[in-house]
Design a binder for these strands. Structure first.
Lengths: 343, 343
DNA sequence: CTGAAAGCGCTTACAG
DNA sequence: CTGAAAGCGCTTACAG
């Protein structure tokens, strides 16, 4: 009764049926008589048999696998993934498992010739793309994906004319909510911090929300308060130090990511300014660490659970040939201490 | 020249050679004449051809894939993975990629009938197990893995008689370093916080290190200062509140994880105690958030980069049939503000 | 250096 | 309800 690496043929011999019947029985085909089916499954269990997925995949042309591609934002120096996207992995994995998909994880650098290979080599049926990338640089890759008929979904903004599907939060509404909140707290000179160029459409949308809120409140849109910073804590600190040195007055900072907001808080504290008394700070993302910094960071939350589940559902739909629409989710303002709303 | 889903046969037809030669050429076999090889590779590139990995895997009985199994510590309520292990994913993925392995990620619940399936179904050649599990409960699963001849490596302590290989940090040395540091700061009544039972051998080792440091310093090992808490912030807060209510005096807390340390800091602050003036706090793990809490947490760092790379190297060794030894890495005390060393 | 052939372990249309 | 057969796309021992 002991077989080293049992195959369906071994089960068939043991059960006294054909190999085809074993295959059917193990897939719970209604074609097989219940009694036969149970007998076969019993034997399979005893032998600790599992279907060789590679054979099944070769035969069916389906891998039942999703590839999760994370843009490596560190340029290959480190393998630390942006914590916002990192925490999505759990939800994606669980959600995929519940739908019968395995999840392959891979870090992708801008220089890599990525993506195309996963589906072409039949390792994955579709791709999920995660990361705050530079969309101008990535565009070329996305076009290559589309040209190869690869199924993919990006977590990010809906960009006009961009190939493929996207799922992201409504960045403009989020940026607007953050800014309105600051305005309601009496703040009038609100810095917008980050790379809001078209290279980062999600950040640009947050900026549009900011601009709209100011406009609606009758506040001036001062270009001097638009501060560029690449999306790292270090760049944020630097940008804020420069702003402080310039002597320009401001009473609030809306950073387009939490990473930037945390950097800004450090720079402000180092300059002897008190958050939120002197300057209110609001971020975006609700990173796990946002609740742990002091003062706890007020921020715009993107629902990562909803995002993870939505991404899997979308790519599964694409794989099954269903029509899938790009989706925008509602962001949520999380009020903590850095804005000064709580007294 | 356009073929929808090209196979090696298509390349062969186009190149005017046999399919076998194409296969050899694409694998850079020295058997193939260089000119022929380059010609074939050229055509493959033009057609955007990639080897069907499922066929190759079926044929070679190798998946060149590692399965990364994360113990789900939330009991299925949430899919948040312990951030310590989460941040290892990047290093594991990159390291695996550099050795030619794909990485499959999966959340595993205690109730699942896990593990065995990955290798038996030929989806992975070996497993990496990550998580602060309850080793008494997991033991049964590990035995099943071993019985099925599955190759696996666990990030965790080396436990006597436990099947398989482990890679972890030297928890006893880490616990000792943390405690000695507190003693050198003049602390005499040091609470040890966490589940230090044999269910969590890594925590038990940290406790042994603690005990040894006290002993060496001629300090009493007071059982009243050994405080049990399951590894969540909430349980930590509760345990500390109970300790504070008991009126027992103490001047330091060595929490066996950062999660517990952060919970303890909250409980102490809520009770009006000042860290580190009234009570020094030291944790273990160096979670990303440890540097962000106030005061910044002094903790014992486990090198996740070294860990990730070591795990991949170890499982790759196991797969290739090389002898692999269980490994202990050196932990490193990271001194920040919560212990009171900096003035 | 190259080709013809076998075979990895499945799934499924076809025939009964 | 079941079996015989074909075939998914590779890799590699064997023969030349």
């Amino acid at each position: 009764m002991k077989v080293e690496n049992p195959t369906s043929r071994d089960i068939a011999d043991l059960a006294g049926v054909s190999q085809a019947t074993v295959s059917r029985a193990l897939r719970n085909s209604p074609l097989v008589r219940q009694e036969t089916r149970e007998h076969i499954q019993q034997i399979a269990r005893e032998l600790n048999y599992f279907v060789n997925r590679n054979a099944a995949r070769l035969r069916t042309h389906q891998s039942n696998t999703l590839a999760l591609l994370l843009f490596d934002e560190t340029g290959g120096n480190d393998a630390q993934i942006n914590p916002f996207f990192l925490s999505m992995i759990g939800y994606i994995t669980r959600s995929a498992a519940s739908m019968g998909y395995d999840v392959l994880v891979s870090l992708q650098q801008l220089t890599d010739d990525w993506h195309v290979e996963y589906q072409a080599s039949h390792r994955a049926d579709g791709l999920i793309l995660l990361g705050y990338g530079d969309y101008v640089s990535y565009r070329e890759k996305l076009d290559a994906l589309a040209a190869a008929n690869t199924r993919f979904i990006i977590y990010g903004p809906i960009v006009k004319d961009q190939p493929g599907h996207s799922l992201g939060c409504d960045n403009e509404t989020g940026g607007r909510a953050a800014t309105e909140h600051l305005i309601n707290l009496g703040r009038k000179r609100i810095v917008i911090l980050g790379d809001t160029s078209k290279r980062h459409p999600e950040f640009a949308s947050r900026y549009f929300g900011y601009a709209r809120a100011l406009q609606q409140a009758g506040l001036e849109l001062d270009q001097d308060l638009k501060i560029h910073a690449d999306n790292t804590e270090e760049h944020s600190v630097e940008a804020m130090q420069q702003l402080l040195r310039s002597g320009r007055s401001f009473d609030a900072v809306f950073a387009v990511t939490d990473v930037l907001a945390i950097g800004a808080m450090h720079a402000l504290a180092d300059a002897g300014l008190h958050v939120p008394v002197d300057v209110s700070v609001v971020g975006f993302d609700d990173l796990p660490r946002a609740a742990f910094v002091t003062p706890a960071l007020t921020t715009v939350q993107q629902n990562i659970r909803e995002a993870g589940e939505g991404l899997v559902k979308a790519i599964a739909g694409l794989i099954e040939g269903k029509p899938v629409e790009s989706i925008q989710m509602a962001p949520k303002l999380i009020i903590r201490d850095s804005c000064g709303a709580k007294k």
